[in-house]
Computed example of a mutant assay.
Amino acid sequence: MSKLKILFIIAVIFAGALAIKAYTLYQAISPNAIVSWQQSDEQSNGVIDHQLWGDILNHYLRENVNSGVREFDYAAVSQGDKAKLTIYLTQLQGIDPRDYNQREQMAYWANLYNALTIDLILKNYPLSSIKEIGDGITGPWNEELAVVANTPLTLNQIEHGILRGIYQDKRIHYVINCASIGCPDLPAKPLTGSDIESQLEQGAKRFINQRKGVHFDNDTLVLSSIYSWFSIDFGDNERDLLLHLSHYAEPELGEKLRNFDGNIDFAYNWKLNQPN
């Protein structure tokens, strides 16, 4: 058995233990509640307006020319734009997403997650990491930050209960951002139901070809800790994971991944995704 396979098995076992712990610590949405959020109107042609969120991203999200990582300029956000973000979040919480089709719903939940996270940072700024917010154990992810259809929700419930729990699409990881450099970059534009498929694909390709997502350190493959924490989302074994990564990797990196059979490490940078 290769060292990679052994490490992958250990990662899967560890991730499973973390999932059990997360369920108790983070008060994940109950199965009955998940079934409730699964409802949709597939005949609906309704479109949710994310223009306010788009304006904020356009003003404050920038790409670092040296690292290639998108950064959000929290320090520059005006009081007027903070108010605009509040209006946007209020508008989203006035919507019952189940009145829309599933594509529109997925975009809704991902935009809500990202906007709530930015709003959370702005309310606690200045700080160097999102992990400074909260109880010091579970961070801010178990705090009730939104009420949708009379249901209080946390970031963990939106991410793990709804986005991961309902849609079962590994690419969701690439379009939600936890305000950290190590996270997949915040999408430059709001997600939309009409473009969600291409946006998921673009997000996967972007992250996997960034150093923080996948890189080699001599003979060691270094992956984002996302692939350890959520290993269950990326297949049943290390070969499934490597095939997923190679599918989106640029040709040279993809070839190395397809032929890889060595040591693997995981890394993650929790530093706030802001300009230096």
Results as ranks from 00 to 15, higher is better:
G46P: 04
N64K: 09
R62N: 06
I34W: 01
S44A: 14
I10K: 12
G54F: 00
A83I: 12
D55G: 02
G80D: 09
Y74G: 00
S30D: 11
A22H: 03
A11K: 00
A19Q: 07
V12D: 03
Q43D: 15
N32E: 15
N32K: 14
I29A: 05
S30V: 09
A28D: 07
V47Y: 11
W53S: 00
H50L: 05
A22S: 12
D41S: 14
I13N: 10
Y60W: 08
H59M: 05
R62Q: 12
L25T: 02
Q27T: 10
L25V: 03
H50Y: 06
I20W: 06
Y23L: 06
L25F: 07
D49H: 05
W53A: 00
R62C: 04
A75M: 11
D49L: 04
K82N: 08
E71N: 12
Y74N: 01
K21S: 08
Q38V: 04
Q27A: 13
I48M: 06
Q27I: 08
S30P: 11
E71S: 05
N64D: 15
A19S: 11
Y26E: 05
Q51E: 12
H50K: 02
E71P: 01
L18T: 01
G80M: 05
I20H: 03
V65Q: 13
S67H: 04
V77H: 01
S78A: 09
I29H: 00
F14P: 01
A76C: 10
A75C: 09
Y74K: 01
Y23C: 08
H50Q: 10
L61Q: 08
E63P: 09
I13W: 11
G68L: 04
S44T: 12
S40W: 06
I56G: 00
A83V: 13
D41W: 05
Y26D: 05
V35G: 09
H59L: 08
K82L: 10
V47T: 15
V12F: 07
E63N: 13
Y74A: 03
S30K: 15
A19L: 03
D73P: 02
W53K: 00
S44F: 03
I29K: 00
E71A: 07
K82G: 01
I34T: 09
A76D: 10
N58D: 04
V69I: 13
V77G: 01
A76K: 13
Q27P: 05
S36I: 14
D81H: 02
F14C: 11
A28P: 05
A33N: 12
A15Y: 00
Q79A: 12
